[in-house]
Design a protein around this nucleic acid. Structure first.
Lengths: 201, 201
DNA sequence: CCCGCCCCGGGACAAATGTCACCGCCTTCC
DNA sequence: GGAAGGCGGTGACATTTGTCCCGGGGCGGG
């Protein structure tokens, strides 16, 4: 039996997937969590063979948790399951030591198949997505640029951002300008959009 | 047997739900679509007893399709199934003649139960959500304000918006200002955010 | 008929935003 | 030891954005 941990925030999706996987003869869902920072503790207790992680979770990103999990429980494989096939996400997933990367489009049958292949030691990645990740290149943004850009979502003013990141307003504007330049966009919102699109957050 | 149509864009979610509902003794999934404008044609052919519609679909909004479907196939009940429990969505769903409104959080067991209750003539609505929808009040934005605000997503400049909506830049700025005022926000991005939050798009 | 409200536009003005040049400090790498 | 680059900051500048006030036209209800 393949012992599986399932991390997914949408209750209906989580329940449906769990039920679905439970129908497979060789797969058993031993734990379910809906929150990012429950992943590692729960895994340490349930000791699954494989963890199926969503990326965008409340509490903690599935990518962060993946890296942590690979350290603390190396025998447990990690499969990332996400809505968005963003190049930067795939890149980070691989760097975190994930065995595969699935998008939530695509048929359900892929899921069980991916689990078995990952456990057999294979890497499970959509070829088209892999190509996109390679052609997009690495994240050009520095740490601070990411911070500032992240704080700029949903229309915060420069003053808001400065307060949130503990920087001078003037500095914030410089970072924003740099980020806008690197993303080849025209204003902060386009920059945020482009950065998210690429999975550089 | 309850004949069900399933409209949902995420392949994995769609497949999982279909499989899940298929396990119920009295429910049968007679059609699945992943695109908004396939809903009505497919329903006219498959003649389901109930249609389970996501709102945010490619091609056409599930809410639009719901209204249309109620006209063209009155014996078919409509159940809205969405990620976001936005007050305006609920309001529009009810105006479109939906029999119920489910959010994708919450347990899977709710789904089959909701289908049966909807077919029995009940209205299926989360009480907390209903309260929020009533307290939020109706959409205060005019048609043009909605147009302009919609065109302002992802950081378009005034000139971009003006071109997209075929208006003078000056007029666009006036509408944006009005929308910002009505949403009690400080800039266009916050206004967009607030409007989307409430399901006023 | 008038009132209110929506539509469309213009002008003027203050504030916010984006850009550029320049400063110093620090770390890393050749 | 220098070059390169990230970090934090300042000042100046042009552009954009948000606001307010002003027109005119249309349409519905009292």
């Amino acid at each position: 039996m393949i012992r599986t941990l399932l991390a997914e925030d949408q209750g209906m999706m989580r329940g449906a997937l769990a039920l679905l996987l439970g129908l497979e003869d060789d797969i058993e869902v031993v734990a379910q969590v809906g929150n990012g920072d429950e992943i590692v503790p729960t895994a340490l207790e349930a000791r699954p063979d494989i963890a199926l992680l969503d990326i965008e979770l409340p509490g903690r990103s599935g990518l962060d948790a993946a890296a942590d999990l690979r350290q603390r429980l190396p025998e447990c494989r990690v499969l990332i399951l996400t809505t968005f096939g963003r190049p930067g996400y795939l890149r980070r997933a691989m760097e975190a030591g994930a065995s595969g990367f699935l998008v939530k489009d695509g048929p359900v049958e892929d899921l069980a198949a991916a689990i078995r292949r990952a456990l057999a030691g294979e890497r499970v990645i959509d070829p088209a997505l892999a190509a996109a990740a390679l052609s997009a290149g690495p994240n050009p943004l520095t740490q601070r640029e990411r911070d500032v850009l992240s704080a700029a979502v949903d229309g915060a003013t420069v003053a808001d951002i400065a307060a949130k990141v503990h920087l001078s307003p003037a500095t914030v504007r410089n970072y924003l300008s740099a980020a806008i330049g690197k993303t080849q966009t025209r204003n902060r919102m386009e920059a945020v959009r482009a950065a998210r699109q690429n999975g550089w957050l």
